[in-house]
Design a binder for these strands. Structure first.
Lengths: 230, 230
DNA sequence: CGCATGCTTCGGCCGCGGCCGAACTGTGCG
DNA sequence: CGCACAGTTCGGCCGCGGCCGAAGCATGCG
Protein backbone atom coordinates (compact mmCIF):
# COMPACT_ATOMS: atom_id res chain seq x y z
CA UNK A 1 0.00 0.00 0.00
CA UNK A 2 2.10 2.85 1.25
CA UNK A 3 5.21 0.87 0.49
CA UNK A 4 4.09 0.86 -3.10
CA UNK A 5 3.72 4.60 -3.03
CA UNK A 6 7.17 5.05 -1.52
CA UNK A 7 8.69 2.79 -4.13
CA UNK A 8 6.92 4.61 -6.92
CA UNK A 9 8.03 7.96 -5.58
CA UNK A 10 11.66 6.91 -5.45
CA UNK A 11 11.54 5.33 -8.88
CA UNK A 12 9.82 8.38 -10.32
CA UNK A 13 12.70 10.53 -9.11
CA UNK A 14 15.11 8.39 -11.09
CA UNK A 15 12.61 8.27 -13.93
CA UNK A 16 13.27 11.77 -15.18
CA UNK A 17 16.01 12.00 -17.84
CA UNK A 18 17.62 15.07 -16.34
CA UNK A 19 17.72 13.60 -12.86
CA UNK A 20 18.90 10.25 -14.17
CA UNK A 21 21.73 12.07 -15.88
CA UNK A 22 22.78 13.80 -12.69
CA UNK A 23 22.59 10.63 -10.63
CA UNK A 24 24.62 8.83 -13.23
CA UNK A 25 27.29 11.48 -13.07
CA UNK A 26 27.55 10.89 -9.34
CA UNK A 27 27.81 7.12 -9.65
CA UNK A 28 31.54 7.14 -9.09
CA UNK A 29 31.09 8.47 -5.59
CA UNK A 30 32.43 11.93 -6.28
CA UNK A 31 30.57 15.05 -5.23
CA UNK A 32 29.71 17.66 -7.86
CA UNK A 33 28.36 21.19 -7.65
CA UNK A 34 24.85 22.12 -8.72
CA UNK A 35 26.26 23.97 -11.72
CA UNK A 36 28.24 21.01 -12.92
CA UNK A 37 25.25 18.75 -12.53
CA UNK A 38 23.07 21.17 -14.45
CA UNK A 39 25.65 21.17 -17.20
CA UNK A 40 25.87 17.40 -17.54
CA UNK A 41 22.08 17.17 -17.54
CA UNK A 42 21.79 19.88 -20.17
CA UNK A 43 19.43 22.04 -18.14
CA UNK A 44 19.60 25.47 -16.54
CA UNK A 45 20.81 26.00 -13.00
CA UNK A 46 17.38 26.86 -11.64
CA UNK A 47 15.85 23.69 -13.01
CA UNK A 48 18.69 21.63 -11.62
CA UNK A 49 18.27 23.30 -8.26
CA UNK A 50 14.71 22.09 -8.05
CA UNK A 51 15.69 18.56 -8.99
CA UNK A 52 18.50 18.48 -6.48
CA UNK A 53 16.25 19.69 -3.70
CA UNK A 54 13.79 16.90 -4.40
CA UNK A 55 16.52 14.26 -4.63
CA UNK A 56 17.97 15.40 -1.32
CA UNK A 57 14.58 15.49 0.35
CA UNK A 58 13.97 11.92 -0.75
CA UNK A 59 17.30 10.84 0.68
CA UNK A 60 18.92 9.96 -2.64
CA UNK A 61 21.51 12.71 -2.40
CA UNK A 62 23.50 14.31 0.37
CA UNK A 63 24.56 17.92 0.22
CA UNK A 64 27.59 19.58 1.67
CA UNK A 65 28.28 23.31 1.68
CA UNK A 66 31.81 24.46 1.10
CA UNK A 67 32.23 28.19 0.69
CA UNK A 68 29.78 29.37 -1.86
CA UNK A 69 29.66 25.97 -3.51
CA UNK A 70 27.29 23.19 -2.69
CA UNK A 71 28.56 19.72 -3.34
CA UNK A 72 26.08 16.96 -4.02
CA UNK A 73 26.82 13.27 -3.85
CA UNK A 74 24.90 10.01 -3.61
CA UNK A 75 23.56 9.66 -0.09
CA UNK A 76 24.57 6.03 0.36
CA UNK A 77 25.95 2.96 -1.34
CA UNK A 78 22.39 1.64 -1.40
CA UNK A 79 21.51 4.37 -3.86
CA UNK A 80 24.39 3.39 -6.10
CA UNK A 81 23.33 -0.23 -5.94
CA UNK A 82 19.81 0.72 -6.87
CA UNK A 83 21.00 2.70 -9.87
CA UNK A 84 23.14 -0.17 -11.01
CA UNK A 85 20.23 -2.57 -10.71
CA UNK A 86 18.07 -0.27 -12.78
CA UNK A 87 20.73 0.09 -15.44
CA UNK A 88 21.05 -3.66 -15.58
CA UNK A 89 17.36 -4.08 -16.28
CA UNK A 90 17.45 -1.22 -18.74
CA UNK A 91 20.08 -3.18 -20.62
CA UNK A 92 22.33 -0.19 -20.57
CA UNK A 93 26.04 -0.67 -20.27
CA UNK A 94 27.53 1.33 -17.42
CA UNK A 95 28.48 4.72 -18.80
CA UNK A 96 31.94 4.89 -20.41
CA UNK A 97 33.13 7.04 -17.52
CA UNK A 98 33.94 9.95 -19.78
CA UNK A 99 37.00 11.72 -18.43
CA UNK A 100 35.37 14.98 -17.58
CA UNK A 101 38.09 17.44 -16.75
CA UNK A 102 37.42 18.86 -13.36
CA UNK A 103 39.49 20.62 -10.80
CA UNK A 104 42.97 21.91 -11.34
CA UNK A 105 44.50 21.27 -14.71
CA UNK A 106 47.89 20.65 -13.23
CA UNK A 107 48.50 16.90 -13.19
CA UNK A 108 50.89 17.11 -10.26
CA UNK A 109 48.30 18.98 -8.20
CA UNK A 110 45.66 16.38 -8.95
CA UNK A 111 48.05 13.63 -7.94
CA UNK A 112 49.13 15.01 -4.61
CA UNK A 113 49.06 18.36 -2.85
CA UNK A 114 48.55 19.88 0.54
CA UNK A 115 45.25 21.29 1.68
CA UNK A 116 46.10 23.70 4.47
CA UNK A 117 48.02 21.33 6.74
CA UNK A 118 47.03 17.94 5.36
CA UNK A 119 47.39 15.86 2.20
CA UNK A 120 44.93 16.01 -0.66
CA UNK A 121 44.58 14.87 -4.25
CA UNK A 122 44.66 11.23 -5.25
CA UNK A 123 47.20 10.62 -2.51
CA UNK A 124 45.09 12.11 0.25
CA UNK A 125 41.95 10.33 -0.86
CA UNK A 126 43.82 7.03 -1.23
CA UNK A 127 45.14 7.25 2.31
CA UNK A 128 41.72 8.07 3.70
CA UNK A 129 40.02 5.27 1.84
CA UNK A 130 42.72 2.75 2.70
CA UNK A 131 42.46 3.55 6.39
CA UNK A 132 38.68 3.41 6.26
CA UNK A 133 38.75 0.10 4.42
CA UNK A 134 41.04 -1.38 7.04
CA UNK A 135 38.88 -0.22 9.89
CA UNK A 136 41.50 2.16 11.23
CA UNK A 137 39.23 5.17 10.97
CA UNK A 138 35.50 5.60 10.70
CA UNK A 139 34.30 8.52 8.63
CA UNK A 140 30.87 10.07 8.80
CA UNK A 141 29.62 13.17 7.03
CA UNK A 142 30.06 15.40 10.01
CA UNK A 143 33.00 13.85 11.75
CA UNK A 144 35.04 10.75 12.25
CA UNK A 145 36.91 8.66 14.76
CA UNK A 146 40.08 6.64 15.07
CA UNK A 147 39.41 3.03 16.04
CA UNK A 148 41.58 1.05 18.48
CA UNK A 149 43.14 -0.70 15.47
CA UNK A 150 43.81 2.73 14.07
CA UNK A 151 45.50 3.81 17.30
CA UNK A 152 47.84 0.86 17.03
CA UNK A 153 48.63 1.60 13.44
CA UNK A 154 49.35 5.25 14.14
CA UNK A 155 51.65 4.41 17.00
CA UNK A 156 53.58 2.05 14.75
CA UNK A 157 53.64 4.70 12.06
CA UNK A 158 55.29 7.14 14.42
CA UNK A 159 52.34 9.29 15.34
CA UNK A 160 51.39 9.80 18.96
CA UNK A 161 47.61 9.86 19.13
CA UNK A 162 46.31 13.06 20.68
CA UNK A 163 45.59 13.22 24.36
CA UNK A 164 42.02 14.08 25.29
CA UNK A 165 42.48 17.77 24.48
CA UNK A 166 41.22 18.86 21.09
CA UNK A 167 39.80 15.43 20.35
CA UNK A 168 36.76 16.86 18.72
CA UNK A 169 38.33 17.72 15.41
CA UNK A 170 41.16 15.21 15.46
CA UNK A 171 39.77 12.96 12.76
CA UNK A 172 37.66 14.85 10.28
CA UNK A 173 36.72 14.18 6.64
CA UNK A 174 37.33 16.97 4.13
CA UNK A 175 35.93 17.00 0.64
CA UNK A 176 38.74 16.79 -1.88
CA UNK A 177 38.76 19.49 -4.50
CA UNK A 178 39.96 17.51 -7.50
CA UNK A 179 38.88 14.04 -6.54
CA UNK A 180 35.59 15.13 -5.04
CA UNK A 181 35.85 12.47 -2.40
CA UNK A 182 36.82 12.72 1.22
CA UNK A 183 40.37 12.84 2.49
CA UNK A 184 41.53 13.12 6.09
CA UNK A 185 41.74 16.51 7.76
CA UNK A 186 41.89 17.62 11.35
CA UNK A 187 44.75 16.79 13.69
CA UNK A 188 45.06 13.33 12.22
CA UNK A 189 45.35 14.64 8.67
CA UNK A 190 47.96 17.14 9.75
CA UNK A 191 49.95 14.51 11.64
CA UNK A 192 49.90 12.08 8.73
CA UNK A 193 51.01 14.82 6.41
CA UNK A 194 53.83 15.93 8.68
CA UNK A 195 55.02 12.38 9.17
CA UNK A 196 55.09 11.77 5.40
CA UNK A 197 57.30 14.84 4.98
CA UNK A 198 59.43 13.70 7.88
CA UNK A 199 59.95 10.29 6.33
CA UNK A 200 60.93 11.86 3.03
CA UNK A 201 57.98 10.24 1.30
CA UNK A 202 56.77 13.52 -0.20
CA UNK A 203 58.51 16.77 -1.11
CA UNK A 204 57.10 20.22 -1.71
CA UNK A 205 57.12 21.61 -5.22
CA UNK A 206 58.35 25.22 -5.08
CA UNK A 207 55.73 27.91 -5.57
CA UNK A 208 52.92 25.39 -5.55
CA UNK A 209 50.69 23.45 -3.23
CA UNK A 210 51.56 20.33 -5.17
CA UNK A 211 53.78 17.74 -3.53
CA UNK A 212 55.90 15.10 -5.19
CA UNK A 213 55.82 11.47 -4.08
CA UNK A 214 59.42 10.22 -3.90
CA UNK A 215 60.60 6.71 -4.79
CA UNK A 216 60.93 5.99 -1.09
CA UNK A 217 57.45 7.36 -0.67
CA UNK A 218 55.97 5.04 -3.27
CA UNK A 219 57.48 2.04 -1.54
CA UNK A 220 56.52 3.24 1.92
CA UNK A 221 52.95 4.06 0.98
CA UNK A 222 52.58 0.67 -0.64
CA UNK A 223 53.83 -1.04 2.47
CA UNK A 224 52.09 1.07 5.09
CA UNK A 225 48.72 1.63 3.38
CA UNK A 226 48.66 -0.75 0.42
CA UNK A 227 48.40 2.25 -1.85
CA UNK A 228 49.41 2.22 -5.51
CA UNK A 229 48.94 5.67 -7.03
CA UNK A 230 49.70 4.51 -10.60
CA UNK B 1 23.94 9.64 -22.85
CA UNK B 2 21.55 7.06 -24.22
CA UNK B 3 22.25 4.88 -21.22
CA UNK B 4 20.85 7.66 -19.08
CA UNK B 5 17.73 7.74 -21.19
CA UNK B 6 17.31 3.99 -20.93
CA UNK B 7 17.72 4.11 -17.20
CA UNK B 8 15.24 6.94 -16.88
CA UNK B 9 12.73 5.13 -19.03
CA UNK B 10 12.93 1.98 -16.94
CA UNK B 11 12.75 3.89 -13.69
CA UNK B 12 9.82 5.92 -14.94
CA UNK B 13 7.91 2.74 -15.61
CA UNK B 14 8.33 1.75 -11.97
CA UNK B 15 7.67 5.35 -10.98
CA UNK B 16 3.94 5.21 -11.50
CA UNK B 17 1.94 4.18 -8.43
CA UNK B 18 -0.37 1.87 -10.32
CA UNK B 19 2.47 0.11 -12.10
CA UNK B 20 4.50 -0.08 -8.91
CA UNK B 21 1.55 -1.75 -7.27
CA UNK B 22 1.30 -4.35 -10.00
CA UNK B 23 5.02 -5.05 -10.00
CA UNK B 24 4.95 -5.41 -6.27
CA UNK B 25 2.16 -7.94 -6.49
CA UNK B 26 4.34 -10.00 -8.82
CA UNK B 27 7.39 -9.86 -6.58
CA UNK B 28 6.82 -13.38 -5.29
CA UNK B 29 7.39 -14.81 -8.74
CA UNK B 30 3.82 -15.80 -9.36
CA UNK B 31 1.99 -14.90 -12.54
CA UNK B 32 -1.28 -12.97 -12.31
CA UNK B 33 -3.95 -12.12 -14.84
CA UNK B 34 -4.50 -8.61 -16.13
CA UNK B 35 -7.75 -8.40 -14.25
CA UNK B 36 -6.19 -9.37 -10.97
CA UNK B 37 -3.44 -6.84 -11.48
CA UNK B 38 -5.95 -4.13 -12.29
CA UNK B 39 -7.75 -4.99 -9.09
CA UNK B 40 -4.69 -4.79 -6.84
CA UNK B 41 -3.70 -1.50 -8.46
CA UNK B 42 -7.18 -0.08 -8.04
CA UNK B 43 -7.60 0.85 -11.69
CA UNK B 44 -9.87 -0.28 -14.51
CA UNK B 45 -8.97 -3.13 -16.81
CA UNK B 46 -8.33 -0.92 -19.80
CA UNK B 47 -5.90 1.27 -17.92
CA UNK B 48 -4.09 -1.79 -16.60
CA UNK B 49 -3.89 -3.19 -20.09
CA UNK B 50 -2.00 -0.16 -21.27
CA UNK B 51 0.40 -0.34 -18.35
CA UNK B 52 1.01 -4.04 -18.86
CA UNK B 53 1.73 -3.55 -22.54
CA UNK B 54 4.34 -0.93 -21.75
CA UNK B 55 5.93 -3.02 -19.01
CA UNK B 56 6.16 -5.99 -21.33
CA UNK B 57 7.57 -3.93 -24.17
CA UNK B 58 10.28 -2.65 -21.84
CA UNK B 59 11.17 -6.18 -20.82
CA UNK B 60 10.05 -5.86 -17.22
CA UNK B 61 7.24 -8.36 -17.58
CA UNK B 62 6.71 -11.56 -19.53
CA UNK B 63 3.28 -12.58 -20.72
CA UNK B 64 1.89 -16.02 -21.27
CA UNK B 65 -1.47 -16.81 -22.81
CA UNK B 66 -3.49 -19.62 -21.38
CA UNK B 67 -6.99 -19.98 -22.74
CA UNK B 68 -8.67 -16.63 -22.54
CA UNK B 69 -6.46 -15.53 -19.71
CA UNK B 70 -3.16 -13.76 -20.02
CA UNK B 71 -0.75 -14.36 -17.21
CA UNK B 72 1.84 -11.72 -16.44
CA UNK B 73 4.97 -12.26 -14.39
CA UNK B 74 8.29 -10.55 -13.80
CA UNK B 75 10.49 -11.13 -16.81
CA UNK B 76 13.61 -12.05 -14.87
CA UNK B 77 15.21 -12.21 -11.44
CA UNK B 78 17.06 -9.03 -12.37
CA UNK B 79 13.76 -7.18 -12.33
CA UNK B 80 12.98 -8.50 -8.88
CA UNK B 81 16.40 -7.47 -7.67
CA UNK B 82 15.90 -3.99 -9.07
CA UNK B 83 12.57 -3.64 -7.33
CA UNK B 84 14.07 -4.77 -4.08
CA UNK B 85 16.90 -2.28 -4.41
CA UNK B 86 14.40 0.50 -5.03
CA UNK B 87 12.32 -0.49 -2.03
CA UNK B 88 15.42 -0.49 0.09
CA UNK B 89 16.24 3.08 -0.86
CA UNK B 90 12.62 4.07 -0.45
CA UNK B 91 12.89 2.82 3.11
CA UNK B 92 9.84 0.72 2.62
CA UNK B 93 9.58 -2.62 4.30
CA UNK B 94 8.75 -5.40 1.87
CA UNK B 95 4.98 -5.69 1.70
CA UNK B 96 3.40 -7.98 4.30
CA UNK B 97 2.62 -10.52 1.57
CA UNK B 98 -1.09 -10.24 2.14
CA UNK B 99 -2.61 -13.68 1.63
CA UNK B 100 -4.75 -12.93 -1.39
CA UNK B 101 -7.03 -15.87 -1.97
CA UNK B 102 -6.46 -17.10 -5.48
CA UNK B 103 -7.25 -20.28 -7.29
CA UNK B 104 -9.30 -23.11 -5.92
CA UNK B 105 -10.59 -22.70 -2.42
CA UNK B 106 -10.03 -26.35 -1.61
CA UNK B 107 -6.87 -26.61 0.49
CA UNK B 108 -6.16 -30.15 -0.66
CA UNK B 109 -6.33 -29.05 -4.29
CA UNK B 110 -3.92 -26.21 -3.69
CA UNK B 111 -1.55 -28.57 -1.97
CA UNK B 112 -1.38 -31.26 -4.62
CA UNK B 113 -3.45 -32.33 -7.58
CA UNK B 114 -3.10 -33.69 -11.05
CA UNK B 115 -3.16 -31.49 -14.11
CA UNK B 116 -4.14 -33.81 -16.93
CA UNK B 117 -1.40 -36.40 -16.57
CA UNK B 118 1.11 -34.60 -14.33
CA UNK B 119 1.38 -33.19 -10.83
CA UNK B 120 0.37 -29.67 -9.92
CA UNK B 121 -0.23 -27.51 -6.89
CA UNK B 122 2.44 -26.81 -4.31
CA UNK B 123 3.76 -30.31 -4.86
CA UNK B 124 4.15 -29.98 -8.62
CA UNK B 125 5.76 -26.57 -8.35
CA UNK B 126 8.12 -27.74 -5.60
CA UNK B 127 9.31 -30.68 -7.70
CA UNK B 128 9.90 -28.46 -10.72
CA UNK B 129 11.79 -25.85 -8.72
CA UNK B 130 13.85 -28.43 -6.87
CA UNK B 131 14.91 -30.09 -10.11
CA UNK B 132 15.70 -26.74 -11.70
CA UNK B 133 17.71 -25.64 -8.68
CA UNK B 134 19.75 -28.82 -8.81
CA UNK B 135 20.49 -28.46 -12.50
CA UNK B 136 18.52 -31.55 -13.43
CA UNK B 137 16.25 -29.71 -15.79
CA UNK B 138 16.46 -26.36 -17.52
CA UNK B 139 13.21 -24.53 -17.99
CA UNK B 140 12.60 -21.77 -20.49
CA UNK B 141 9.33 -20.04 -21.26
CA UNK B 142 8.69 -22.04 -24.37
CA UNK B 143 10.30 -25.35 -23.53
CA UNK B 144 12.83 -27.12 -21.42
CA UNK B 145 15.43 -29.83 -21.38
CA UNK B 146 16.70 -32.57 -19.13
CA UNK B 147 20.40 -32.19 -18.37
CA UNK B 148 22.84 -35.13 -18.18
CA UNK B 149 22.67 -34.87 -14.40
CA UNK B 150 18.90 -34.99 -14.74
CA UNK B 151 19.14 -38.14 -16.87
CA UNK B 152 21.14 -39.82 -14.14
CA UNK B 153 18.68 -38.77 -11.48
CA UNK B 154 15.70 -40.02 -13.46
CA UNK B 155 17.32 -43.36 -14.10
CA UNK B 156 17.96 -43.75 -10.39
CA UNK B 157 14.41 -42.65 -9.68
CA UNK B 158 13.09 -45.44 -11.86
CA UNK B 159 12.19 -43.49 -14.97
CA UNK B 160 13.60 -44.50 -18.31
CA UNK B 161 14.37 -41.32 -20.22
CA UNK B 162 12.58 -41.18 -23.54
CA UNK B 163 14.30 -42.40 -26.63
CA UNK B 164 14.70 -39.83 -29.37
CA UNK B 165 11.05 -40.13 -30.44
CA UNK B 166 8.75 -37.44 -29.11
CA UNK B 167 11.63 -35.55 -27.48
CA UNK B 168 10.20 -32.21 -28.39
CA UNK B 169 7.61 -32.02 -25.66
CA UNK B 170 9.27 -34.32 -23.15
CA UNK B 171 10.22 -31.62 -20.70
CA UNK B 172 7.84 -28.70 -20.76
CA UNK B 173 6.91 -26.05 -18.18
CA UNK B 174 3.25 -25.54 -17.45
CA UNK B 175 1.87 -22.61 -15.54
CA UNK B 176 0.33 -23.77 -12.28
CA UNK B 177 -3.23 -22.67 -11.68
CA UNK B 178 -3.16 -22.11 -7.93
CA UNK B 179 0.52 -21.39 -7.41
CA UNK B 180 0.91 -19.31 -10.55
CA UNK B 181 4.38 -20.69 -11.08
CA UNK B 182 5.65 -23.36 -13.41
CA UNK B 183 5.45 -27.06 -12.79
CA UNK B 184 6.66 -29.87 -15.04
CA UNK B 185 4.45 -31.13 -17.85
CA UNK B 186 5.12 -33.13 -20.98
CA UNK B 187 6.37 -36.68 -20.98
CA UNK B 188 8.62 -35.94 -18.02
CA UNK B 189 5.80 -34.55 -15.93
CA UNK B 190 3.63 -37.53 -16.75
CA UNK B 191 6.40 -39.99 -15.94
CA UNK B 192 7.18 -38.31 -12.61
CA UNK B 193 3.51 -38.33 -11.73
CA UNK B 194 3.08 -41.98 -12.67
CA UNK B 195 6.16 -42.97 -10.69
CA UNK B 196 4.92 -41.14 -7.61
CA UNK B 197 1.65 -43.07 -7.78
CA UNK B 198 3.58 -46.29 -8.38
CA UNK B 199 5.73 -45.68 -5.30
CA UNK B 200 2.65 -45.02 -3.23
CA UNK B 201 3.80 -41.47 -2.48
CA UNK B 202 0.51 -39.95 -3.57
CA UNK B 203 -3.06 -41.24 -3.71
CA UNK B 204 -6.06 -39.97 -5.62
CA UNK B 205 -8.89 -38.36 -3.72
CA UNK B 206 -12.18 -39.76 -5.04
CA UNK B 207 -14.26 -37.44 -7.21
CA UNK B 208 -11.52 -34.85 -7.28
CA UNK B 209 -8.36 -33.92 -9.06
CA UNK B 210 -6.72 -33.49 -5.68
CA UNK B 211 -4.14 -36.02 -4.58
CA UNK B 212 -3.00 -36.87 -1.09
CA UNK B 213 0.65 -37.06 -0.13
CA UNK B 214 1.16 -40.17 2.02
CA UNK B 215 3.54 -40.51 4.94
CA UNK B 216 5.83 -42.54 2.72
CA UNK B 217 5.49 -39.84 0.12
CA UNK B 218 6.59 -37.09 2.50
CA UNK B 219 9.70 -39.05 3.42
CA UNK B 220 10.42 -40.02 -0.16
CA UNK B 221 9.96 -36.52 -1.52
CA UNK B 222 12.20 -35.13 1.16
CA UNK B 223 14.91 -37.62 0.29
CA UNK B 224 14.62 -37.58 -3.48
CA UNK B 225 14.00 -33.85 -4.06
CA UNK B 226 14.72 -32.18 -0.74
CA UNK B 227 11.11 -31.05 -0.66
CA UNK B 228 9.22 -30.11 2.51
CA UNK B 229 5.63 -29.19 1.73
CA UNK B 230 4.87 -27.97 5.23
C1' DC C 1 31.40 48.78 0.12
C1' DG C 2 29.91 47.22 -4.72
C1' DC C 3 30.36 43.70 -8.07
C1' DA C 4 30.61 38.85 -9.61
C1' DT C 5 29.32 34.27 -8.88
C1' DG C 6 26.68 30.18 -7.35
C1' DC C 7 22.43 28.87 -6.14
C1' DT C 8 17.45 29.27 -4.95
C1' DT C 9 12.57 30.94 -5.33
C1' DC C 10 8.67 32.49 -7.97
C1' DG C 11 5.45 32.62 -11.80
C1' DG C 12 3.69 31.04 -15.86
C1' DC C 13 3.77 28.12 -20.06
C1' DC C 14 3.06 23.73 -22.07
C1' DG C 15 3.24 18.97 -23.13
C1' DC C 16 3.32 14.24 -21.59
C1' DG C 17 0.86 10.70 -19.74
C1' DG C 18 -2.60 8.57 -16.57
C1' DC C 19 -7.41 7.89 -16.36
C1' DC C 20 -11.93 6.41 -17.81
C1' DG C 21 -16.21 5.45 -21.02
C1' DA C 22 -17.30 3.25 -25.00
C1' DA C 23 -16.65 0.21 -28.56
C1' DC C 24 -14.07 -3.85 -30.58
C1' DT C 25 -11.60 -8.67 -30.64
C1' DG C 26 -11.25 -13.21 -29.34
C1' DT C 27 -11.91 -17.15 -26.53
C1' DG C 28 -14.89 -20.42 -24.05
C1' DC C 29 -19.48 -22.30 -23.02
C1' DG C 30 -24.12 -24.05 -23.58
C1' DC D 1 -25.53 -19.59 -32.92
C1' DG D 2 -25.77 -16.21 -28.95
C1' DC D 3 -24.13 -14.99 -24.62
C1' DA D 4 -20.52 -14.10 -21.17
C1' DC D 5 -16.18 -12.75 -19.99
C1' DA D 6 -11.13 -11.33 -20.50
C1' DG D 7 -8.57 -8.19 -22.64
C1' DT D 8 -7.42 -4.48 -25.95
C1' DT D 9 -7.96 -0.12 -28.71
C1' DC D 10 -9.67 4.54 -29.29
C1' DG D 11 -10.80 9.18 -28.02
C1' DG D 12 -10.92 12.81 -25.07
C1' DC D 13 -10.35 15.02 -20.48
C1' DC D 14 -7.34 16.86 -17.14
C1' DG D 15 -3.75 17.55 -13.90
C1' DC D 16 1.01 16.92 -12.57
C1' DG D 17 5.41 18.28 -13.29
C1' DG D 18 9.48 19.80 -16.14
C1' DC D 19 11.16 23.84 -18.18
C1' DC D 20 12.79 28.55 -18.46
C1' DG D 21 13.04 33.94 -17.55
C1' DA D 22 13.36 37.01 -14.04
C1' DA D 23 14.17 38.28 -9.60
C1' DG D 24 15.94 37.30 -4.91
C1' DC D 25 19.41 35.70 -1.38
C1' DA D 26 24.18 34.27 0.07
C1' DT D 27 29.15 34.10 -0.25
C1' DG D 28 33.69 35.68 -1.77
C1' DC D 29 36.80 39.14 -3.76
C1' DG D 30 38.93 43.53 -4.74
Amino acid sequence: MSSNAAMAETAALVGDPARACMLNALMDGRALTAGELASVAGITAQTASGHLARLSAAGLLAMERQGRHRYHRLASPAVARMLEAIMQVAGAAPPPALPRRIGPADAAMRRARTCYDHLAGRLGVAIAEAMAARGQVELATDGGAVTPAGQDFLTGFGIIPEPGGSRRAFCRPCLDWSERRHHLAGGLGAALCARCFELGWVKRVPQSRAVLVTRAGEAGLRQAFGIELG
